[in-house]
Nucleic acid binder design. Structure first.
Length: 734
DNA sequence: AGCACGCCGACT
DNA sequence: GTCGGCGTGCTC
């Protein structure tokens, strides 16, 4: 029997091997292409997996294979190169292939549902509509414009295209439909080619020009695009993307969190038009899948999305951009713990296309790669429109009486800013009213029952809220310990600062932007709109304020609580603090209104802080890198974190001790083991957590160890009593 | 992860 | 005598 073909299938299950099946009954050989989905029996039930390869001999000798139920796709969903990239990623991050591939699929496809068609609905003129004259629509200019547009198009226009060309189209279109002038038709071809955005050349400054020229679009290269806020990184992206499109290839743009970068998205849509598939979080499952198919089939020329968009199949990929590459949201913090930024470089390498990593505050990893020559280093030094960077100063708040965390000097500066008719921005990286509630009589402190953490008071509703597990309870006016009624709240969050500011400046519009005020969809946009219109003169909020938005009328930035960054438990704390300060500072100022940044600190002499404000982020980063080098920390070494958690206090420790022993035996002395140690917050959401940290000078030594170690960990009996995970290149030790 | 099997405690 | 607890093992 020559037709003894065996299907190797990646089945979504937390298992580190793939599974072999016989082809479904009556399958034609040509339908068995790697990259199609296969429905297979698995254990008790059925699963939807992906066909990885065809074999003539299985490696499960003497076992009767089960027969797959059905091939679910007529054409592969992933090409060979994309499939191999996913397999590589799974191996690198020690995550089961089946789950990695499932992760890369839109949810509907994951569940085995039939692939959605990429039919588009487009508006056409009817025969009656074709007979109409624009001149007869003098009283309805919108309808006249619509009529003209539709007459020009040969193939009809999508509503996205209409929205792109006209500011309002809905009601005139409806009116025309009622007159029988227009109709909607379904098409199999996704886009009318006439709907490309215009790619007019924009004037680049000399920095931008040399950055664009330095990128070789013909082959792989990784580049750090290093430029302060407002230096025009987006213009460089757009120019490169346009060049790539004009060569008939596709571009992939990654952004940290889509809700926080509406300005970037709007610019891409405005400049590139209909070819942009934006993967919002707001898309429904079906819309999301259709955008995915458009990209996969090569109809979408640009895909813009958050970290998961990295896995979109793109047959003609010619450029990857990772905007704000330092942002931690590129690292997935559960399940498949990949870094989209790092994988972007791998994908570019494998697909032989350039990768641009953009940031005003590059991560030390990327900076190191640029300094060592592995990445090209493109610098944008001038701020567009000659805007000057804000002047940064430290405000010593030792022995200063603070009012809700605000020093008198800062308050005076705010007053001056408001009197000059400008806006002030205050950054407090702590939401809620106060982080501590305590009894003045007995010293009792409100703590979470499920975490080793204090509960934060949220003022308006007088509710205690644990920011780590989300549990909340009503604050009783009496101390639960001694019964006294002298509870006090210490420290301040955004709510209290807002309260005090509104007492200090009763006439002034104040807006607070944090997770609590922007929970509802669209509320962030609404608040930002108010800021743009000058409705508010004081802006205060958490890091949400520091991302993506620019506030040209802000001339004063106050940073309230920067000190925990200086002495954080994590060796990356200083880097993050510096990035945060520089990012917030970048929100302010423009040509005629240079901004000023005041940083309140109890450690004004701290050398790293001094370096940052006197000589800027680059100098800070060089020094921080030198410290990392002398301590042999990443990026001068490589780390893997084995995490374990369980409801029983001892279980993680028992597991990690065994894991440690096994690891040492496998490592041949080329890997250092630190721990096990309890996690920084040992108990969280009722589970005890502990870590074992591995470090090596060579990635390959860690990779070799992991391949064997992870399999043997899975078979440990102590592993059954914990939830464990391997974090390759961990970013946060939480 | 699910989901079976299997071997010991309190119940209609 | 069963119902069901969760320890252990398997998934092509």
């Amino acid at each position: 029997m020559p037709d003894q073909l065996i299907l190797r299938v990646a089945v979504p299950a937390p298992l580190y091997n793939s599974f072999d099946y016989l082809p479904p009954d009556g399958t034609l050989a040509e339908s068995l292409m790697p990259g199609v989905r296969v429905s297979v029996p698995f254990g008790r039930g059925d699963r939807c997996g992906i066909l990885l390869e065809l074999l003539t001999e299985g490696n499960i000798a003497g076992r009767r294979l089960k027969r797959a139920h059905a091939i679910l796709d007529q054409a592969p969903l992933f090409m060979k190169a994309d499939l191999e990239f996913l397999i590589w990623a799974g191996r690198y991050y020690q995550h089961p292939v089946g789950e990695v591939i499932a992760n890369a699929l839109p949810v509907r496809l994951r569940k085995g549902e039939p692939a959605a068609s990429v039919k588009t609905t487009r508006w056409h003129l009817t025969d009656l509509g074709l007979l109409q004259q624009a001149s007869s629509l003098k009283r309805a200019p919108k309808q006249a414009a619509l009529l003209a547009l539709l007459k020009e198009s040969t193939n009809g226009l999508t509503k996205e295209h209409l929205a792109h060309q006209l500011d309002t189209y809905r009601s005139p279109l409806l009116a025309m439909q009622q007159k029988g002038w227009v109709e909607v038709l379904e098409h199999d071809d996704p886009e009318s080619s006439a709907s490309r955005g215009q790619s007019a050349a924009y004037a680049l400054n000399s920095d931008q020009k040399s950055a664009v020229d330095a990128v070789d679009l013909g082959r792989f290269g990784a580049y750090l695009l290093d430029g302060v806020t407002g230096s025009g990184k987006t213009e460089v992206y757009l120019t490169l993307v346009n060049e790539v499109i004009s060569k008939g290839r596709q571009a992939l743009i990654l952004v940290p969190e889509i809700g926080l970068t509406p300005q970037l998205i709007r610019r891409f849509e405005a400049r590139l038009g209909q070819g942009v598939a934006v993967l919002h979080s707001g898309l429904g499952a079906l819309e999301r899948e259709q955008a995915w198919h458009l990209a996969r089939l090569g109809h979408a020329t640009v895909v813009l999305g958050t970290r998961s968009a990295l896995f979109t199949p793109l047959p003609r990929l010619g450029l990857i951009v990772v905007d704000e590459e330092h942002d931690l949201s590129y690292k997935q913090q559960d399940g498949f713990r990949y870094s989209a930024r790092d994988l972007a470089v791998i994908r570019g390498q494998r697909g032989d296309c350039p990768v641009i990593l953009g940031s005003a505050t590059p991560s030390l990893e990327t900076l190191h790669n640029a300094q060592s020559g592995r990445y090209g280093h493109l610098k944008l030094t001038s701020r567009a429109g000659e805007a000057k960077l804000a002047q940064m100063d430290l405000l010593d708040i030792r022995s200063v009486r603070l009012e809700a965390g605000l020093s008198p000097l800062l308050i005076e500066q705010i007053r001056g800013t408001l009197q000059a008719g400008n806006q002030a921005l205050l950054f407090i990286n702590r939401r809620g009213y106060a982080p501590i509630v305590t009894c003045h009589d007995c010293g009792w402190v409100a703590e979470c029952r499920r975490c080793d953490a204090r509960m934060t008071l949220h003022g308006s509703s007088n509710i205690l809220w644990c920011h780590h597990c989300g549990s909340q309870r009503r604050l009783d006016p009496h101390c639960p310990e001694c019964g006294a009624d002298d509870l006090r709240s210490l420290g301040q969050g955004t709510e209290r600062v807002e309260e005090v500011l509104s007492q200090l400046f009763p006439e002034i519009g104040i807006v607070r932007i944090d997770r609590d005020t922007t929970r509802r969809k669209g509320s962030l946009d609404k608040l930002l709109e108010g800021i743009r219109k000058g409705k508010y003169s004081i802006l205060l909020g958490t890091q949400m304020l520091a991302k993506g938005h620019h506030f040209p009328d802000v001339t004063l930035v106050g940073i309230l609580d920067v000190d925990q960054g200086l002495f954080g438990a994590d060796y990356r704390a200083a880097e993050r603090m510096a990035q945060q300060i520089v990012q917030v500072s970048g929100r302010a100022g423009r040509a005629e209104k240079p901004g000023r940044v005041l940083i309140q600190t109890r450690h004004p002499d701290h050398p790293m802080m001094q370096l940052l404000i006197r000589r800027g982020y680059d100098a800070f980063a060089s020094e921080a890198l030198a410290e990392r080098q002398s301590a042999a920390f990443p990026p001068f070494s490589y780390q893997v974190l084995l995490r374990a958690e369980a409801p029983q206090e001892s279980a993680p420790r028992v597991f990690l001790d065994e894991a440690h022993q096994q690891g040492v035996a496998l490592a041949n002395g080329r890997v250092e083991f630190w721990g096990p140690v309890p996690a920084p917050m040992e108990r969280r959401a009722g589970r005890y957590r502990a870590h074992l940290l591995l470090q090596a000078h060579q990635r390959s030594d860690l990779q070799r160890l992991l391949a064997q170690w992870v399999v043997s960990l899975a078979s440990l009996k102590s592993a059954r009593r914990v939830r464990w995970s391997v974090d390759v290149d961990p970013q946060e030790m939480l």
